[in-house]
Design a protein around this nucleic acid. Sequence first.
DNA 1: AATAAAATTTAGACAAAACTAAAAATATTA
DNA 2: TAATATTTTTAGTTTTGTCTAAATTTTATT
Lengths: 219, 219
Amino acid sequence: MSFTTSEENYIKGIFHLQQETGLVNTNSLAAEMQTRPASVTDMLKKLKSKKLLQYEKYKGFKLNEAGKKAALDVVRKHRLWEFFLVEKLKFDWDKVHPIAEELEHISSEELVQRLDNFLGNPSFDPHGDPIPDKNGKIPVIKQQSLSEIPFKKNVTVSSVGNQTAQMLDMLKHYNIAIGTQLTILKKFEFDGSLEIKVSKQNACIISEQVAKNVFVHDV
Amino acid sequence: MSFTTSEENYIKGIFHLQQETGLVNTNSLAAEMQTRPASVTDMLKKLKSKKLLQYEKYKGFKLNEAGKKAALDVVRKHRLWEFFLVEKLKFDWDKVHPIAEELEHISSEELVQRLDNFLGNPSFDPHGDPIPDKNGKIPVIKQQSLSEIPFKKNVTVSSVGNQTAQMLDMLKHYNIAIGTQLTILKKFEFDGSLEIKVSKQNACIISEQVAKNVFVHDV
DNA sequence: AATAAAATTTAGACAAAACTAAAAATATTA
DNA sequence: TAATATTTTTAGTTTTGTCTAAATTTTATT
């Protein structure tokens, strides 16, 4: 089964929302896709006819197994291309998303498989998000928010919660990226901010809000 | 100025035809694009309104300077991606065309420039066709058909005239690719076929028709 | 429970890119 | 040159994906 770019984008959008909420509703998908509720209804009928959705009028909807597999295929392509752009073409990690949004719709299966091998079958993209394998299996690592880590423990940054341009820009200033090693030196009770050591640089202070959105795992 | 995938494909098709015939006509472009003459007329109006064409009803058409630059941009992207697919992802050179047809429409200029650098700024793609630089400048080498080369002279394959799947399949059997070194051992007057030595392999015989479509340059 | 508000769907329209069939312009040839 | 054939364009339709406005269904509030 193959899909249009528009279908793939909707599938991805539904997948994203249903991971948080289970059932998805029309308005929230319209917001996610930056489109109108009526357009969402149109596409839902199409995806239902392709047997990718459980959907009943007015009752909400979610992807079935076929739909989830289709979503994971797109996510896989997106994240592999992001990895390529950062690791091979040396893009800044906060610049690659819109380009990967285009590349993810290239259809060749063999291309994806060869790209995966060329990149060394990576498990995580440059934002720390897991890359599904060709069967849709997602690698897991146990990770905690930086705000829950005890003092002096060495940890590695594994992903970022709030992947806005603003957040990524901020982390770039702190020299924090996926794979960066951190240690917490002190917590300021006043506002919850943390003094941390980033790799081998001087110590610096990050807000509690930032700390909550930085996820880490053991070294 | 940016273009839709469809516009880019038409621009490329016109560019291809006008290199041989100067002025292009509606029917031949329809054949090239595997579409209907009426669809060609529709698109010509659009491209004319975007000031990419000289076009008068019933009189034929050709790209102006802006149109040619647009065509060269697409050709550049196509050939850089083909190079990537063969050199980095290890695709057979006769399998990459349809994938590059998709990749050539990815819009990021920075992507193309970084890809070019990543690949080492190659001058020729895996079929031996020249890769325009970012200003649209095309590298040239003087090349001759294999059928015009004297005996015993060492030459390198630089491109292939008839890039059909059938031809590329045939050359693969002979172990001939771009960059392969050849020497002509004997010409059979009976049908014009040639006995040649391919790299360090045993001698073999190719038809006159094949020889005419294999272009070579000095070692 | 009745009514108001919100969410969702339907109906109808539009734009892009294609198509078919018919008309118009150009080219060929008898 | 008149008749015929070919090429090209126009006119009108189709498909995909979108939209607005209106109607319908569900949910929330007195």
